[in-house]
Design a protein around this nucleic acid. Structure first.
Lengths: 230, 230
DNA sequence: GATGATTTGTACGTATGTATA
DNA sequence: ATATACATACGTACAAATCAT
């Protein structure tokens, strides 16, 4: 996993991307120590850019830096996680309402087409591909709201929640349910019914949140008690 | 403005606070160069912590860092600014709705009391004090939503918009209008009417946004054309 | 377009603070 | 509790890139 410095950008940017990706994808777990020297050796750079990357990552709340005590992959308390899912539901609702009001015709066509195509994935129970579709589906809603700041907030929140959402499609019937919920959102948006779109999107995320917390719950209870977080 | 290092925290934390404050308060203007060496001398530290602070500030979107070309105070395009105000209105609406549903009794009492007390400030046309009250008023709504992540997002957005809101109370009648708008929000929240609270809060921020853009507009048109941003 | 001045990017050394025996 | 080991915080040196002339 040594750093292959893509042209242009600076070392720090690459480091931020690499480390953020490792955290968001769940490859590095919450609480894991991020030792500067080890990271420096691992990426083949000096400690300086590592430190600077950790600074940025801590501003993104992906890592937690305690003065003089080093950095760890950020750990989300159950409460914080709940509040993030809640905010996510509200934000998705807002985006869906605005999208219903503002999407251009071609955005609507593309959105509908994408949704219809996903039926195939559900039939095949293609979890992995559906997950990819799901991300694009939601991005289309955020983009359809035509408000770039809102887009940034929602996308950032979604990233941070990614590790907690990733396994949910393996729950029985979740794929089929997800499709039906998407369908309600699509119908409302195409109809231009902001209120309905907002409600549908909000409850959809609420369901994801429930499914995820059940999973997180399950994972945590399998850990040894001393491993559990505060 | 040399750095008086409060005990505990690290130098970088202090720097981030100082610089963020200078930017948010409007003391340093968008586009202003943030030369590492000058800042280092000014704060009496070496370039290293300055660089680290700038990293964090750029993650907060308060400064803009171009690789090898230095950092400047972040500049917001008209479009971005509009989208931030729009998001702000939506977020405030969500917070107001949740606050109407969730505030504890003592929060409601304190909230009402704070609002009633502000009538006095309006009568005296005490712009500066009213501005302070206004900040506390809105914070109370965010806190009343009982969702810490939402609180963080809203507070961060509010900070970034601060420089553009600061002068609005000097517009004629804005103080009186603001009070009346607050009154509608308070009434709805105390009644526990989430829908009404959301609508009232959203339109209140919409008005602030309008007032602010008129001001920003006015300021920009006074600048020499070559000073204008992209 | 080339050269010198300036500024940023990265490496590394030392001091200080934190954890551990 | 004191000492030891170790990781971090900050400073300084040098390399690379940009800007001005």
């Amino acid at each position: 996993m040594t750093l292959r410095k893509a042209r242009a950008g600076t070392t720090v940017e690459d480091l931020v991307r690499s480390i953020a990706d490792a955290i968001i994808s769940g490859r590095w777990s919450p609480g894991e120590k991020l030792d500067e020297l080890s990271l420096a050796r691992r990426f083949g750079v000096s400690r300086t850019p590592i430190r600077e990357a950790l600074m940025q990552l801590s501003a993104m709340e992906l890592v937690d830096r305690r003065p003089n005590r080093g950095a760890v992959v950020a750990e989300l308390s159950q409460k914080r996680l709940g509040s993030m899912f809640e905010a996510m539901a509200e934000l998705e609702g807002v985006c869906a309402r605005l999208a219903a009001e503002r999407m251009t015709l071609s955005e609507r066509y593309a959105f509908e087409a994408m949704h219809l195509a996903s039926a195939q994935l559900v039939r095949q129970q293609a979890e992995v591909e559906y997950e990819g579709h799901n991300t694009r589906f939601h991005s289309a809603i955020y983009a359809g709201a035509h408000s770039n700041y809102l887009y940034d907030i929602v996308a950032a929140t979604r990233s941070r929640l990614a590790p907690f959402r990733s396994a949910q499609f393996r729950l029985p019937e979740r794929l089929t349910k997800s499709y039906k919920e998407h369908d309600a959102i699509v119908t409302a948006i195409l109809r231009g019914d902001g209120k309905a779109a907002e409600a549908a999107a909000r409850s959809h995320v609420g369901n994801v949140s429930d499914a995820s917390s059940r999973l997180v719950e399950a994972v945590r209870s399998q850990k040894a008690p001393d491993e559990q977080q505060a």
